[in-house]
Design a protein around this nucleic acid. Structure first.
Length: 751
DNA sequence: GAGTTTGAAACT
DNA sequence: CAGTTTCAAACTC
């Protein structure tokens, strides 16, 4: 028992959450229970485990946890997820010893999370009549998948254990059955069962589980679960699932309904497979704060309790999702790095990595969103630039997108998100509208930028190297005062920030009036001056020629390259990852994305992949581009089409532009952005009524449409799978839009 | 890191 | 609209 107390102490101290302590107690009870003893007898490691477990747990996770609670829960989860993912990929360590307890917690958390998720999803689905299953579910699916991967790693991470298999959760249970795994599982189950008895919280969870079990089941069965499961099934092993069920049953206390347990187990399984449910539900929020994201375990357990307690108001959930998403992004970065580095990364490592990143991202705590935003942007850019990363990013992207999408699909959802965001300290003030949200994103971006302390060029290069950094890129204007289109920041409709190396910069909130005036002036000359340069055509029309490639997208005005052969970033077409078009006046065009003459497509695998694989990206771009696209000089091809989005790829900066465009909402920027006020409308009008309306309509015609900006992230966001789902698209768009706007808000503005 | 190249943006 | 200049990014060394 002494060790139990120790655990509790650790839990309590680190976590500060009563919940954890409660959980700890149940664990101790488990230990006392005959089953526990039996297990101990079976397993070589016994009492020590519990202690050890708590330690790792507390140490890694707890540090972060407290912050998490304070801040929106969402973020933490995300981080953990990311970590988990990486870890998962790493999957180097399977340590069972500490895992057992964790597993138990996780299982509980999963159940609760699943319930919450189910509720949320159901709510979302119901609320979002428009997006319906397509949007929410799809998003959910993607999230689930990614999360799922993460989820397991998380547990492992917390425990320091790493399951090699993707289906880690299920695997451990099954494989370990007799040994540690089984041991853990049983104790967990028992503990869970007992918990309700002993503790209110636990009981609540179980009750909710039981009562919700139907919901969960329903949820699963319905569109969401089914669709999700399919992809995830690979990871999940039916066998493992069964084992879980079987384990759960015997273990389940008579007090609690076996069915409830089964349901929970099923749910749990499903969740793991889908991963979304849990993560989305609650864990994320708190975790966001967690720097380390090591909380995996906590996430699991906490979320459950939290979710139960909360009752899972949709709004709250929505917040969590968002937060998670954002954080996930951040974690993602690190994860990417970690992954690239090698699977060896331990949970602790992942945590560490995550934490720093978060910190960096957020100078001020407010910035949960910031961190996220940055991540997203960076991610998107990364994706574009780094194809190899795509999958992961896409996965994360999905997650990111998904959460928002789910919320956004309907206006109501979108608003909820907004509200949730507002709830978050960081976002709070900025958000009134979707635009605000977008602004918040901008902040994030700015923060990242600010983070980079090196000279702009260095930063750039870093960013390029990293991928994320690119998003952070800023201008280096010397003479333009950042009030001309030469300035990337200004052109993107965003204020310059610290990372910028510009001189005599007027592109600051302080000079808002000047900026706005200048923008107006420029717009008067060219209404599309601030519109995305690359327009994408989703329409079949163009697809004829370039269907396979980015060719679907074209530069609004076309390039005028003479010497670069349209093979370097000097060429805006190439930079934008699109083929040259009739509009181009280039000489000796060799654009790999598509030549002016129409031979476009020699697409390099990369680019093509980008575009093609990025279907999601495209969608995102559409959103962004749409506003612009309307005008696009693009030839007939584009006519109907929605614009393509300016690809982030080229520079990684593109996100800015998107942001700027979409970001108009930003108070600062809003003014800046022509888009925003009259200007904003102007662009919209100019851009093409067609596209914009379509987009909005797709979105359900939700007012959200107001937000336009696309985030580079969006690419990631859109999961490959999601492509099939149209509904998601709309939601994505919304999400993306919101993201871009944030940058504008960023106080980080340089100078 | 400095210098060069390049092409868009701005100007005439 | 065309030509020139200015500018800053992209690129090279």
């Amino acid at each position: 028992m002494g060790h139990e107390k120790d655990q509790e102490k650790e839990m309590g101290v680190v976590m500060d959450t009563p919940e954890r302590t409660q959980i700890a107690n149940p664990l101790s009870k488990f230990e006392d229970s005959p089953v526990f003893n039996y297990i101990n007898s079976l397993s070589p490691i016994k009492p020590v485990k519990s202690v050890h477990f708590t330690q790792t747990f507390s140490t890694l996770n707890f540090a972060t946890i407290p912050s998490v609670f304070t801040s929106p829960h969402v973020s933490s989860l995300k981080d953990s997820k990311f970590l988990k993912r990486h870890q998962f990929s790493d999957s180097s360590k399977p340590e069972l010893t500490s895992d057992d307890a964790k597993k138990a917690e996780t299982s509980e958390g999963n159940l609760n999370a699943t319930q919450n998720l189910l509720k949320q999803q159901t709510d979302i689905n119901s609320s979002n009549s428009i997006t319906d299953t397509s949007a929410a579910p799809s998003s959910g699916c993607s999230n689930l998948e990614s999360r799922k991967l993460i989820y397991e790693p998380v547990r492992l991470g917390t425990n320091t254990l790493k399951t090699a298999g993707p289906s880690a959760l299920s695997v451990p249970f099954i494989s370990n059955g007799p040994e540690n795994g089984s041991f853990r599982n049983e104790p967990e189950v028992e503990g869970i069962n007992e918990l309700p008895q002993s503790k209110e919280v636990s009981t609540c969870d179980w009750d909710s589980l039981i009562s919700d079990g139907s919901e969960l089941l329903n949820f699963n069965s319905p569109t969401d679960t089914v669709s999700y499961k399919a992809p995830d099934q690979n990871t999940l092993h039916p066998t493992s699932f069964n084992t879980l069920l079987t384990n759960a049953k015997p273990q389940a206390n008579p007090l609690e309904n076996d069915e409830g347990l089964k349901g929970a187990a099923e749910n749990y399984v499903v969740v793991t497979s889908t991963s979304l449910n849990k993560f989305e539900v609650g864990v994320p929020v708190e975790d966001t704060d967690n720097e380390g994201g090591s909380l995996n375990k906590f996430e699991v357990g906490e979320p459950v309790e939290d979710t139960d307690n909360e009752g899972g108001s949709n709004l709250y959930r929505g917040m969590r999702r968002r937060c998670l998403v954002f954080e996930m992004n951040g974690s993602r970065r690190k994860h990417f790095e970690d992954v690239s580095n090698g699977s060896s990364a331990n949970v602790s490592e992942s945590n560490q990595t995550v934490a720093p990143s978060d910190n960096n991202l957020r100078p001020s705590r407010n910035g949960n969103l910031r961190g996220i935003g940055l991540h997203l942007n960076s991610i998107a850019s990364n994706l574009v630039d780094h194809k190899h990363v795509k999958h992961e990013s896409s996965g994360s992207g999905r997650q990111l997108i998904i959460a928002p999408s789910a919320a956004y699909p309907s206006m109501g959802s979108g608003r909820e998100l907004m509200t949730t965001l507002s709830d978050s300290p960081d976002v709070g003030p900025a958000l009134n509208v979707a635009e605000d949200a977008s602004k918040a994103v901008g902040f994030v971006v700015n923060d990242e930028l600010s983070q980079s302390q090196t000279s702009p060029r260095k930063k750039r290069r870093r960013a390029e190297n990293v991928g994320e950094a690119e998003a952070c890129k800023r201008c280096n204007c010397k003479k333009s005062k950042c009030l001309k289109l030469y300035c990337e920041c200004f052109a993107a409709g965003v204020y310059c920030v610290e990372p910028c190396a510009c001189l005599e910069c007027f592109n600051k909130p302080i000079h808002e009036d000047t900026v706005l005036a200048t923008r107006k002036q420029i717009e008067s000359r060219n209404p599309l001056a601030f519109a995305p340069k690359v327009i994408k055509t989703s329409d079949p029309m163009q697809e004829d020629e370039s269907s396979n490639t980015p060719a679907s997208a074209r530069h609004k005005r076309g390039c005028n390259c003479k010497k670069s052969g349209c093979l370097k970033k000097y060429c805006e077409c190439y930079q934008g990852g699109v083929g040259c078009s009739i509009n181009c006046r280039c000489e000796g065009c060799k654009n790999t994305f598509g030549r002016k003459d129409g031979s476009d497509m020699d697409l390099e695998g990369n680019e093509c992949d980008t575009n093609g694989s990025d279907g999601s990206l495209q969608t995102v771009f559409h959103t962004e581009a749409e506003p612009v696209s309307a005008t696009p000089a693009t030839p007939s091809r584009f006519g109907s089409a929605r614009q393509s989005i300016p690809l982030m790829n080229s520079k990684g900066k593109p996100p800015r532009s998107f942001l700027a465009i979409g970001s108009s909402s930003n108070p600062r920027f809003g003014k800046l952005n022509p888009f925003r006020g009259g200007g904003g409308t102007k662009q919209l009008q100019t851009v093409g009524e067609n596209e914009i309306p379509d987009v909005f309509e797709e979105k359900n015609g939700s007012p959200i449409s107001g937000v336009k900006s696309c985030s580079p992230n969006s690419k990631r966001v859109s999961p490959p799978h999601s492509n099939s789902i149209m509904g998601q698209r709309s939601s994505r768009k919304l999400i993306l839009q919101s993201i871009p706007s944030f940058p504008c808000l960023t106080p980080n503005s340089k100078h």
